[in-house]
Amino acid sequence: MQPYGKIAVIAALVALSGCQAASKTGGTSATVDPESDRCGASEYQQYLGKPLSAIDGLRFEHPVRAIPHNSAVTMDFNLNRLNFMGDVQGNITRVYCG
């Protein structure tokens, strides 16, 4: 490969890597499928890591359940229900619809 060819390849790679980095910095929020987020779980992701008691004073538009670690829960699937899953220490590890 001639020196000009090598320079052209390197310039193309640099240009492509610049485009790739620009597309990743577009925003921090991920695209949410409205059908799978009927209960609005995406709005409560800031509660991850907080104690389950942090949601005690909140008002919700949909049915809600706080699920402590190793708790028995019904297996019925309700996309309109908001679930807060707790860990051994009582902190919220997952917020989801179902």
Rank of each mutant, 00 (worst) to 15 (best):
F84M: 09
G40M: 03
N78A: 13
E43F: 09
Q45P: 06
V95Q: 00
A41R: 05
Q89L: 06
G57K: 10
I67P: 00
Y96L: 03
C39Q: 03
V73R: 08
N70C: 09
T93Q: 07
Y96G: 00
N83V: 09
N70K: 10
L48Y: 00
V73T: 14
C39I: 09
L52M: 06
F84H: 03
Q46F: 14
G90A: 01
G40E: 00
G90M: 03
E43V: 08
Y44Q: 05
Y96D: 02
A41D: 06
P34R: 02
G86T: 09
V95W: 00
D76N: 10
Y47V: 10
H62T: 14
G57Q: 13
K50H: 09
L48E: 02
H69N: 11
G86P: 03
Q46L: 14
S53W: 04
P63W: 01
E61K: 02
D76V: 11
I55F: 04
I55E: 04
N80C: 13
R94E: 12
L52D: 00
S36M: 14
Y44G: 02
P51I: 07
E35M: 11
M75C: 14
G86D: 03
K50E: 12
Q89M: 12
G40N: 02
L79T: 15
I92E: 00
D56K: 05
L52S: 01
H69F: 13
M85D: 06
A72K: 15
R59D: 11
Q89P: 02
P51Y: 01
S53A: 11
T93F: 01
N80W: 05
S71C: 12
A72G: 13
S53F: 01
F77R: 12
I55Q: 04
R81A: 11
G90L: 05
G86F: 03
I67T: 09
A66E: 05
Y44K: 03
P51N: 04
V95I: 06
E35W: 03
E35T: 10
D76W: 01
Y96E: 05
P34T: 13
N83S: 09
L48H: 01
N70F: 05
G86E: 03
L58S: 08
D37H: 05
G57F: 07
S71V: 13
H62S: 12
H69K: 06
V73D: 12
F84S: 08
L82G: 03
N91E: 06
L79Y: 13
F60H: 04
P34C: 08
L58Y: 04
L58A: 07
Q46N: 15
D76Y: 02
T74N: 07
